Amino acid sequence: MATPLPAGLTTGTYDLDPSHTTAAFSVRHAGIAKVRGTIGVSSGTITVGDDLESSSVTAELDAQSVNTGDAGRDGHLKSADFWHAEENPAWTFASTTIRPDGDAYIISGDLTINGVTKGVELETEFAGTAKDPFGNDRAGFEASLEINRKEFGLTWNASLETGGFLVGDKIKITLDVSAIAKA
C-alpha cells in the first residue's frame, strides 16, 4: 500500500542547500558535560516520488569542516584517533526506506563515518514548504538519530582518575534541512 506524501510536499528533486542546512552533534565529555559541534553539509538530494515508498534521500557531510569551538579539539577529531578525515573526508547517508511514524517519519538508510557503514534510522519531521524571496520552492525537515561511535571505529578514549572515560560512546546527531526544488 502506498503511503501519501506529507501535505504540501510535491513530487520532484530537491537539492540540500548547504548554507541553510545544519548538521550538529553532541557527546558526553568526562561523563558530566556535553561537547557540541557542527559538520558542514557538502551536498544532498531528496527525491520525492508519488508516495513515501518511491522517495529517497542522500547526503554528504565534510569531515574536515568539524567545528566544536576549539581548534585543538577539532584537529583531534579529524586525526587518526577519531575519524581519519584525511583518509575519509566525507560522511555519507543513503536512504533505503521511508515510512510514517505517527506525525513523523522514519528514514532508514546507510550511514558511513570513518569508512565504516552501518544501518541507521533518522526520526524525521516535515517542517513544511515555502517560496523564498528569490522564487525558489523550498522544503524543510528536521531529523535526529543517536549512534554508538564505537560501531564506526571511533574507539579512542582516556580513563578518568575517578572512574569512567573521557568521551561518551553515544553521539546524538541532529539535522535541520532546507532543500530547494530543482526547476
Rank of each mutant, 00 (worst) to 15 (best):
H84F: 13
T58Y: 11
F165K: 07
T13E: 13
L154Y: 02
E87K: 14
F152W: 07
G72N: 15
F141I: 05
P133I: 08
S56R: 11
W156N: 06
G153A: 13
V66I: 15
P133H: 00
D17R: 00
D15R: 07
P89T: 07
K182C: 07
A24C: 03
G72T: 14
G69W: 07
W83N: 05
G109H: 06
I107F: 10
T45A: 13
I106K: 10
I180G: 01
T38R: 13
S26M: 11
G128M: 08
A23Q: 07
S79E: 11
F126D: 04
T129L: 03
G109P: 09
F25T: 01
L166S: 01
I98R: 00
G109E: 09
Y105M: 13
S54I: 06
G115T: 07
P6L: 09
T124A: 10
P4A: 12
F141Q: 09
G140W: 00
L122C: 10
A85K: 03
S178V: 15
E86I: 08
R28S: 14
A23E: 12
A139Q: 04
E161Y: 03
T22R: 08
G72I: 13
T47W: 11
A158E: 11
D137W: 00
S42D: 14
G163D: 10
G40Q: 15
A30G: 00
I147E: 09
L61C: 08
I46M: 13
G163Q: 04
E151F: 01
S159C: 01
A127G: 15
S159E: 12
D81K: 01
A143G: 08
P133S: 06
L77T: 09
T174M: 05
S65A: 06
V41R: 05
E146S: 04
D81I: 10
F141M: 11
L154G: 04
D137A: 09
A63H: 02
G153E: 09
L160A: 02
